[in-house]
Simulated assay, not measured.
Amino acid sequence: MSHDPAYRSLRRAHRRFGSRSTALAVGGFLLYVLLSSFAPGLMNSSLSGHLTLGLALGLGQFVMMAVIVWRYLVHMRTRVTPVTRGLRGLARHHDEVAARGRAAAQPPVAPGAGEFRPW
Rank of each mutant, 00 (worst) to 15 (best):
M43N: 03
M43I: 06
M43D: 12
M43L: 11
M43T: 07
S45T: 15
S45H: 14
S45D: 11
S46W: 04
S46C: 03
L47G: 00
L47V: 15
L47N: 03
L47R: 05
L47I: 15
S48A: 12
S48W: 09
S48H: 09
G49R: 06
G49S: 12
G49M: 08
H50Q: 14
H50E: 13
H50P: 12
L51I: 08
L53D: 10
L53W: 08
L53I: 15
L53S: 08
G54K: 05
G54V: 09
L55H: 10
A56G: 09
A56L: 15
A56C: 07
L57T: 00
G58P: 01
G58C: 11
G58Q: 08
L59E: 06
G60I: 05
Q61G: 14
Q61T: 08
F62Y: 13
F62K: 02
V63M: 07
M64T: 09
M64P: 02
M65F: 11
A66N: 07
A66K: 07
A66D: 10
A66R: 04
V67C: 09
V67F: 05
I68G: 04
I68L: 14
W70C: 07
W70V: 13
W70T: 09
W70N: 06
R71T: 07
R71Y: 02
Y72W: 12
V74Q: 10
H75G: 02
H75N: 01
H75E: 06
M76G: 01
R77Q: 14
R79L: 07
T81A: 12
T81N: 13
T81Q: 11
P82Y: 00
P82G: 05
P82D: 06
V83C: 02
V83F: 03
T84N: 11
R85K: 11
R85P: 01
G86V: 00
G86T: 09
L87K: 00
L87I: 10
L87W: 06
L87M: 08
G89D: 14
L90W: 00
A91N: 03
R92I: 03
